[in-house]
Write a protein that binds this DNA or RNA. Structure first.
Lengths: 206, 206
DNA sequence: TTCGTCATGTAATGGGTTACATGATTAC
DNA sequence: GTAATCATGTAACCCATTACATGACGAA
C-alpha cells in the first residue's frame, strides 16, 4: 500500500497553484504564503527541492513558451524557470483532491485542502469538513476529560491558556458547522432542481 | 554563542512539569498533553529520548524515594522510573523561563512558555506577551498586504479560509491585549504600593 | 557601480513521528 | 490465564528549516 507520502502538504499546494496558472518558484512561494499565510510559511529550502522532485516524477515540466530562437533559448536561459503541470500532474492533483482521509482534515493538511475546495467534488468537501469537525470534537472531548482529572490545582495562567485554546477550537467547530450547513443546503438544492426538471422553481431563502 | 538549542519545546515542558512534581515518563506525557492538548500532542517517541538526553545532561535524575532494601531496589527495578529535577535542572529551567526571545513568542514555543508563566518574572511575562502580539500584528500586516495584491481573483473558499485565519489571529491579538492590560495594571499597582510607603498616592493615567 | 530585490539552488541539521519491540500490572 | 492498560524504549524516516552560495537585473 504505502500510498506514497511523497512531499507532504507542499505537493498539493504546488500542484494546486500551478494548475491555476504556470509560475516560477519564487512567485510560487509568495502566492503560497499569501494563500496560507495565517497558518504556515514555507521557505525556499523546502520549495525548490519539492519542485525538483515533482519534476523528476514527471508531474510538472518547464514551461518555455513559443521560443523561435533555439540558440538563444539554450544560452540565455538562466534565472526564472516557469513550471506548469503535465497530464500526470493534473491526474495526481485530481487524485489528491479526491481522497477525503485524515491527511485532509488533520491540522497540517486541512488548510491546504480547503484552499482548493473549489476544485474539489462536493461530496468530498463535505466529508472533509465533517472529518475535521469530528476530529476537533474528539480533541475537545479528550481535553475536557483531562481537564476534569487535573482540575484541582491549576494556576490562573494555565487556566487562561486552556480556556483560550478551548474557545479557539469551539470557534472553529462553529465555523465548520456553518460551512457544513451551507454545503448541505447547496447539495439539497441541486438534488431538488435535478429531480424536478419540469416543475416550477420555488424560492428557498438563502 | 549558539545558545544550545537542545531539545526544542520539550525541554522546557518537561523541566517545568517535573519542577511541579516528580513523575515518570508515561504520566509526564499525559500531563503534557493535558496541559497543551489544544496546541500539540507529543508522542513517546519524542518524550523518552528527551528524558534520556536530559538525564545525560544532568538536568534530571531518577527519584528513588527512601529505599531501605538495596538488594530489592536493584532487582525489582523495572518499569516506572520517576524523574526529578537536579540543581542544574532547576537552574536551567530558571534560565529558560527568563529569556524573552523569539523562542518564547513564536508559534511553537509560546504555549509552553505561557503555561509556566506563574513561575516567570513579571517583566519577562510582559515582554513575551508583547513580543507575541507584535509578531502576530506583523503577520496580520503582511497578510493584508498580500491580500491586497492578489485581491482580484480569489474564489469564495479561499476567501472564507483567509477570513477565518484573519479573525483567529485578530482574536488572539485581542486576547493578548487584555492579558497585557492586566499585567500592566498589576505591575503599576505593585510599583505604586512600594513607592508610596509614606506619602499619599497620586494618579498618573495609564 | 553598487545596492536591493528577484531568483535558484544545496548541505547540514533538526525536531518530531510512526512503527515496532518488549515487559509489568491490573481487572476480569 | 488472558486481555487491556501501563510503562519504557529504539530505529527508520520525514518534512521542513537554516544557513549558505550564487547569479541576474533594474534603479539610484
Amino acid at each position: 500500500m504505502a500510498a506514497r507520502k511523497g512531499a507532504g502538504v507542499l505537493e498539493l499546494a504546488v500542484l494546486g497553484l500551478l494548475h491555476e496558472s504556470p509560475m516560477h518558484g519564487y512567485e510560487l512561494r509568495k502566492r503560497l504564503n499569501a494563500l496560507l499565510g495565517m497558518f504556515r510559511a514555507f521557505s525556499y529550502g523546502s520549495l525548490y527541492p519539492c519542485l525538483k522532485q515533482l519534476l523528476a516524477r514527471g508531474l510538472i515540466m518547464e514551461d518555455r513558451p513559443e521560443e523561435p530562437n533555439v540558440a538563444l533559448a539554450l544560452q540565455s536561459r538562466r534565472s526564472k524557470i516557469v513550471y506548469k503541470l503535465t497530464a500526470d500532474g493534473k491526474e495526481r492533483l485530481q487524485q489528491l483532491l479526491t481522497e477525503a482521509g485524515p491527511a485532509a482534515w488533520e491540522d497540517e493538511g486541512f488548510g491546504v485542502h480547503f484552499a482548493f475546495f473549489s476544485h474539489t467534488r462536493a461530496d468530498v468537501r463535505l466529508r472533509i469538513l465533517e472529518g475535521r469537525r469530528s476530529r476537533l470534537e474528539e480533541r475537545l472531548e479528550g481535553f475536557r476529560a483531562a481537564l476534569a482529572r487535573t482540575r484541582e490545582r491549576v494556576d490562573s495562567y494555565t487556566l487562561e491558556l486552556q480556556n483560550h485554546g478551548l474557545e479557539s477550537v469551539e470557534r472553529e467547530v462553529r465555523w465548520l458547522n456553518e460551512l457544513i450547513g451551507r454545503e448541505r443546503a447547496e447539495q439539497e438544492k441541486l438534488a431538488k432542481s435535478s429531480e424536478i426538471d419540469q416543475d416550477m422553481p420555488r424560492e428557498n431563502g438563502r
